[in-house]
Write a protein that binds this DNA or RNA. Structure first.
Length: 216
DNA sequence: CGGCTGATGATCT
DNA sequence: GATCATCAGCCGG
């Protein structure tokens, strides 16, 4: 049994594009501990990012590897935009774009620690344990009501979906291999918060976390 | 916890 | 027509 981390309600500040690292891997590290905030007519739902993966255009596993198509075109936007895609006939997943305009790179968000709007997220997901609410790329988009209509959203602007920080110190970060890939499965491009309170919210096999390298 | 499987449809070849 | 950057439910240990 794991008690939710007790932290006072974070005061969130919108992140500016200038604060976001350009390089996709640097951006992935930077985003661990930051917040994704969803505002709609039902209210606010937000979560702290505790797991993500990097995809760069030069990586055969990336959607953008073969160039721009109607589906992936938002991945080629300047850093700090949303790339939302539909997968396995049932789920959406969201990336935060990286690199400069014209390069197809980004960071897949894989898990959040629920912050604001827990009841709202539970109503969207069905009542589930706090640690299961937004653990996994398809679950977190369901919890935050993210679909293709949010594809291309500028996350550094006021709007339905944006990035924030509480200006606290970044948690320790671990690195391991990405999940669900056939190609390039060995690359160490999955990042997660090693803070003990955060680990129950990180997706994937527990053994992979235990055997992972310490990045920071 | 780990392993397996069916569901389900857009996208690209 | 094959391929998915997945999930829930079920099984066994």
């Amino acid at each position: 049994m794991v008690a939710p981390a007790k932290r006072k309600r974070a005061r969130l500040r919108r992140l500016a594009r200038a604060e976001l690292p350009v390089d996709a891997e640097d951006l992935a590290h930077f985003l661990i501990g930051k917040y994704l905030v969803r505002d709609d007519e039902h209210g606010r739902a937000s979560g702290r990012i505790v797991e993500n993966e990097t995809y760069h255009q030069d990586d055969p596993a990336a959607h953008t590897h073969r160039g721009e198509t109607p589906r992936n075109r938002s991945m080629f936007l300047e850093r700090g935009h949303a790339y939302v895609y539909f997968i396995y006939g049932m789920w959406y997943a969201v990336n935060i774009t990286a690199d400069v305009r014209g390069v197809g790179a980004g960071v897949l968000l894989r898990a959040l620690v629920p912050c604001d709007g827990v009841a709202l997220m539970q109503s969207r997901r069905g009542s589930v344990r706090l640690t299961d609410l937004a653990r996994g790329p398809g679950r977190l988009t369901t919890a935050l009501a993210i679909d293709r209509r949010l594809d291309g959203t500028d996350l550094t602007r006021r709007g339905p979906l944006w990035l924030a920080t509480d200006d606290s110190r970044a948690p320790p970060i671990g690195v391991t291999t990405r999940i669900g890939l056939r190609k390039e499965a060995h690359r160490p491009l999955r990042f997660f918060s090693r803070a003990p309170d955060d680990l129950p919210y990180v997706s994937g096999p527990r053994a992979a976390l235990a055997g992972s390298r310490v990045l920071l």
